[in-house]
Each structure stands twice: as structure tokens, then as C-alpha cells.
Design a protein around this nucleic acid. Structure first.
Ligand SMILES: [Mn+2]
Ligand SMILES: [Mn+2]
Ligand SMILES: [Mn+2]
Ligand SMILES: [Mn+2]
Lengths: 142, 142
DNA sequence: TTTTAAAGTTAGTCAAGGCTAAATTGATTT
DNA sequence: AAATCAATTTAGCCTTGACTAACTTTAAAA
């Protein structure tokens, strides 16, 4: 009866899911650098107590995450002092800030309620490709 | 100098992130029940070897996940046999299938390339509220 | 019917990202 | 200067979701 791929389509979904797993691994990193940049701008410095409050997690969790971000080159920190973004961290934060804004504005332009848009944008932002982001941007009239 | 919340806005982002963490905890479950339903429809049964191939993970990983889904009441399975959805699993699969389709069609309607839309929809689907989904649906003309 | 190959299971390991409880440090009051 | 309080760190625990390697079962071929 010939090639099985003739009977059943190839279904190379595996690559889609591999990319999805990669996106998930980056989500926390992206939200942290973005939040650290916000805190530095709004309050002059990023303290872990503020990160814990805004993310709704414990101080211990923030500590772990900051260590990982430091290991990965996104932040620097010294014990009992505030947290700083590296150049790499600043770059990622800026990229994420713009992307977040585009996604949020797009949802608003679509007619979604601002409170709902705030929730959904926080998740969607990590899963939009450059192409989709451009389409969002175009739709909301830049 | 008065109430600090007068100087700095309240920033109750914590709830947004709590919901985001919840969405993440459900993602694998949602993708599995959806894929199991697809396999049953396309191939008559859902075998773990097919799940492993489509998700691009090992057989051991599928086994772990199926045990969790069983524990949570979404599937039933017996050793060395294929996997079945419970009523609860079927219900979730159907909801996810529809949602996935709406997200995908919406991206296509927006002008996103089908291959890119396939990638992005796989991630975005887990982060769209009912309200946003309705807006997507309306935009693509149901 | 025996042998072999494919599918599935089990055991053990790891990292991420959460938690609590306890210890430590730094900053503010007294 | 000492005491206190808030912030931070550390230690230990848990679940999810990934892996490899080894084993068992089932199905297919010889
Ligand atoms: Mn996600
Ligand atoms: Mn986010
Ligand atoms: Mn998905
Ligand atoms: Mn899906």
C-alpha cells in the first residue's frame, strides 16, 4: 500500500512544540528583566522585596530567580543590595517592553477591555513571532 | 509627605502573574488532550509512541505525563494499551480544539503566514481569555 | 513456535520555579 | 550604642517536565 506518509500526513508538529518549550523557558526571564527596568525607572532602584510584591511570589523565589538571571548574564547583584541590569539585560528589557506595548495596544484596538487586555498581553507577549508582532502593529496603526 | 500610594501607583500586577502561572500549569494538559483527540480521530487510537513523535519528546516523558493526566481525571490507560479520554478529557479537548482553531484562523485573517501562524497559535491559545477569543472570532468573521 | 523488533515501563537524574522556616544583615529608632 | 525591624539569604522541600539506560511486554517475522 506504499509509503505510510501518503496515507497519513507527516505531522511535523515536533518542531512547533520544541519552539514552544523554548519560549516557556524564557518567559520568567523576560518578565523579570522587564519588571526590573520598570522599577528602576519608577522608583530609582530594583529591590527584591518590590519584585516579590509585584509578581506575587516569596522573597526566596525572587532570590533563586535573580541568581539564575545573574548566571545567565542579564543582571548583576551584590548581597543585600539592589539589582542592576547588564547591557544584555537592558537590551532584552527594552525589546520586551516594546513588544508588550504592541500586544497590549493591539488588544485594545481590537476592542478588548483594558483590564482583560492587561491579563492576556502578559501571556501572549511571549508567544508572538516578529511577523505576528508586525501584523499586530500594523493593525493598531503603529 | 502623605500616602506612598499617592506618589506611586498601586501596581497590583500580582494577580496577573498568578493567572499566568496557572495558565502555564495547564498548557501541557491542554496540548495532550487535544493531541490525543486528534490521534483518535486520525488514526483510530492514541498510542504513546505517536504522542512522543508528535511532541518531540521521549517515550518516558509521555509516560510520566499520561500518569499525571490519569491522576487528574483526563485520561484512562492500561499498561501496554492505548490511551483514552474521559468525559472530562473529551470536554477539555473539544474546548481547546475550537479555541486553537479560532486563534489560528484569526492570525491567518490578520495576514500572518500559515507556517508562522501554526507556531504562534500553539503558544497564544493558552493565554486568550473568553473575551479576547470572542474578539478574535468576530474579527475573522466567525 | 521461536526469535526478534517495536512499544511501553521503570528507575534514577536534572533544572526550573515554586514554597516554608530559620538565620543573617542592614537600616531605623530609641 | 543598643535594640528592633525590615530585607535578604540560606536550607530544605515539592512538582513539573525533561532526559538516559535498562528492563518487560506485545506484536511481527522467520
Ligand atoms: Mn506561555
Ligand atoms: Mn509576560
Ligand atoms: Mn498549545
Ligand atoms: Mn494546541
Amino acid at each position: 500500500m506504499g509509503d505510510p506518509s501518503a496515507r497519513h500526513p507527516r505531522h511535523n508538529k515536533a518542531e512547533v512544540f520544541a519552539q514552544l518549550r523554548y519560549a516557556h523557558a524564557r518567559e520568567v526571564t523576560e518578565d523579570y528583566v522587564e519588571m526590573i527596568a520598570d522599577l528602576i525607572e519608577e522608583e530609582g532602584e530594583a529591590r527584591s522585596v518590590a519584585l516579590a510584591e509585584r509578581f506575587g511570589v516569596t522573597a526566596a523565589t525572587v532570590n533563586n530567580t535573580i541568581k539564575r538571571l545573574e548566571r545567565d548574564g542579564f543582571v548583576t547583584s551584590r548581597p543585600y543590595r539592589s539589582i542592576f541590569l547588564t547591557d544584555q539585560g537592558k537590551e532584552l528589557a527594552e525589546k520586551c517592553r516594546k513588544r508588550h506595548e504592541i500586544v497590549y495596544n493591539f488588544l485594545i484596538a481590537l476592542g478588548v477591555d483594558p483590564a482583560i487586555a492587561e491579563f492576556d498581553a502578559e501571556g501572549i507577549e511571549h508567544h508572538v513571532s516578529e511577523e505576528t508582532l508586525a501584523a499586530f502593529s500594523k493593525f493598531s496603526g503603529n
